[in-house]
Amino acid sequence: MEFGPHLVLATLEGAVTAAVLALTAVGLSLVFGVMRVVNVAHGEFFMLGAVLAWWVTSLIGGPPALGFAAALVVAPLLVGLLAAAADMTVLKRIDYDPERTIVATIGLLYILQQVTLMTYGADARPVEPPFNTRLAIPWVTFAEGRPQLIWPWGLGTTSYKLAVIGAAAAVLAGVWLVMTRSRIGLLMRATQLDRDMALAFGIPVERIYALVFGLGAALAALAAVLIVPISQAHYLMGGDPLLLSFIVVIIGGLGSLPGTLVAAILIGLSDGIISVFFSPTLAKILATLLVALVLVFRPQGLFGLRAA
């Protein structure tokens, strides 16, 4: 395949990665932004979403679309409730202390991972996509000075991958609308800006925290449900999304939702393109190098505010 079609293919793969990464990282960023909690267990909520998607689709059976639609609702809901319960029983008890919450979420990470291993097992299991039509992509070449439409072999994508990009964009738009246009979003932002003043104006901060922790985890789980028909559900699959989410959140600026989105697109697309042209390992090395550069030259991230 020539360079041009190859680049289009790589960009499409990168767009899928970026879409899923943006959902996952926005969840992490939301939790850090509002609660100042570095949630090391975020990748395990992602993994649980994928495992629950397998469980729901296996349980329901029938047409793949039916089970998948149920998984899209059930998995984020259950994971969100579990995270909210973890917030109320663990994080609240340690008063959301920044250092202790890191240790607590590391503990949560291992508990979720090992319980999944004991119950779900060590096998990677597939989830059938609800639809998966192959879509060929045309390319224009110039033969004897005239444009000619061709269909290069291998240049194509699937309807499901395009749907993943569309669904992620729709959910992210929904999160943005909730944060900027709704009353609950206003309360979340006020809590993020000044916890004590939020309390002094009657905002039930602990309930907001439980909601945000649950919402952050539910977004990770939703991202996993979307990607599991492409990847597979496995009990160790939370590591990469956690690492990439941290990379995105640091580059974008801790707690900045627009920054997280821009960084997710940057990292996702570059990950897809570099993986196709070179290797996935090189893509991770470059992303980590970028984080190091950001931490040295712009520690607050691209869109973050410098601490006073």
Binding site: L186, L187, R189, A190, L193, D194, M197, F201, G202, I203
Partner: peptide, 18 residues
């Protein structure tokens, strides 16, 4: 200690909601 990134109207809305 205003909610600096929120608008005047939003700051007042939080007061009303309390």
């Amino acid at each position: 200690r205003l909610f600096g990134e929120l608008t005047v109207a939003q700051n007042l809305e939080i007061g009303l909601m309390a």
